[in-house]
């Protein structure tokens, strides 16, 4: 379990490199979404390690916020505004 947590941490570091270095903003958004997925996996493994179910709602919450953030970035890249007044 510790080994998988270490591997997830290394993956998040590689994704962070892509966030900083990324040639275009699409790469950065995809790397941020991948960081969110890795955080979910890390939380799940951590709750197995601690033998508790207190973090399950946290997993859902990270998923929802990562989803909304990705959609907001996609709208900003596509249209230039995040929330439109009239379509």
């Amino acid at each position: 379990m510790i080994l998988s947590l270490v591997i997830l941490t290394i993956t998040i570091l590689f994704n962070f490199y892509r966030v900083v270095k990324g040639p275009s903003s699409v790469d950065r958004v995809q790397a941020l979404d991948a960081i969110g997925i890795n955080l979910i996996a890390g939380t799940a493994i951590f709750s197995v390690y601690l033998d508790t179910h207190a973090f399950f709602e946290l997993i859902l919450l990270i998923g929802i916020l990562s989803f909304i953030g990705t959609i907001a970035f996609a709208r900003f890249i596509e249209r230039g505004v995040v929330i439109e007044r009239k379509r």
Binding site: L61, I64, I68, I71, I83, E84, R85, K86, R87
Partner: peptide, 17 residues
Amino acid sequence: TTAAGIVLLYLSFDIER
């Protein structure tokens, strides 16, 4: 969390709708 759901509605549709 409720605010996040309403913001998702705002993002997907527009403010007036």
